[in-house]
């Protein structure tokens, strides 16, 4: 092609926005590394320690397994009960938060506000507070998981509720159904598979979370991390990590399979 003649080029758009964004990101990263005193030097210096730690973890002390089976079962129990209670509590909260079911602004928005509030507090923080209230043990952990599950399941459910097909709702209104009847015949059938799926998903998250709640004294296997690390028994820590890993992967796998069947 003949390229000698130079065509009038259209003016390229300004790149100022890109430069500004880049500057802000760099500033944010730089500020963050100053604040956290993160330095490459420290990382490189610390790296050998990491490898020493890993070396001390192997071979794992398999006999320790017997000591922690009970704690692991407790962890699963906490996750199971916490998720169940959270899921039950989430039903009315989700219904009250969905704009196509609860028409009253004055009812819906305060509920959503509380829900958002709950969702800002991480599970371990909730556990730490509950430990202060009811004392050390699996109970505060279960309570924390229940509150956390309530937040997550209610949020996911009310978003799903708002996207359901309006047709059946109108049909039930047309046959003169009351609001509970409408929920029972038009809403529940549309939402129950999603709800179960959200609950299983939350259960997966809760098993992971429950594994570390023991660090703040809220029961489960997490307590044993502190014990073994405190006594520098890294080969035992390794057993705990591997055991947790196995359980988490197993539960994730079966839960994912179940969820695929549901939807």
């Amino acid at each position: 092609m003949n390229t000698n003649k130079s065509l009038p080029h259209p003016k390229p758009p300004s790149k100022l926005k890109h430069y500004l964004t880049a500057a802000i990101v760099i500033l944010l990263l730089w500020g963050s590394s100053v604040q956290t005193e993160a330095t490459m030097g420290e990382l490189i210096e610390g790296f050998p320690n990491m490898f020493d730690l890993l070396a001390e973890m192997f071979p794992p002390k398999w006999t320790y397994f017997d000591n922690i089976v009970g704690a692991m079962l407790e962890t699963i129990r906490m996750a199971l009960i916490g998720t169940t209670i959270g899921a039950i509590l989430a039903i009315p909260v989700a219904l009250l938060s969905a704009s196509n079911i609860t028409k009253s602004w004055w009812l819906r928005h305060p509920v959503r506000f509380v829900l958002n509030l709950i969702r800002t507090i991480p599970d371990l923080l909730l556990a730490a507070i509950f430990v202060a209230i009811v004392g050390i043990g699996p109970l505060p952990g279960t309570m924390a998981l229940a509150v956390f599950s309530l937040g997550l399941i209610a949020k996911l459910s009310y978003e799903a509720l708002e996207s359901i097909d309006r047709g059946p709702l109108e049909a039930m209104t047309a046959v003169g159904a009351g609001s509970l009847q409408r929920i029972w015949y038009a809403v529940i059938p549309q939402i129950q598979a999603h709800f179960m799926s959200f609950t299983l998903y939350t259960f997966e998250i809760n098993v992971r979370a429950a594994a570390v709640l023991g660090l703040v004294g809220a029961g489960g296997i997490g307590h044993y991390y502190e014990i073994t690390l405190g006594f520098l028994e890294y080969d035992k820590t390794c057993v705990i990590i591997l055991f947790t890993l196995g359980i988490v992967l197993l539960i994730d796998y079966s839960s994912t399979k179940l969820r695929e069947k549901l939807l």
């Binding site: 956290t36 990382l43 990491m50 730690l53 690390l229």
Partner: peptide, 13 residues
């Protein structure tokens, strides 16, 4: 975090 504390010491890093 517990393991990194062993490596680089306690703190934000």
């Amino acid at each position: 975090a517990l393991m990194f504390i062993k490596a680089v010491g306690p703190g934000s890093f």
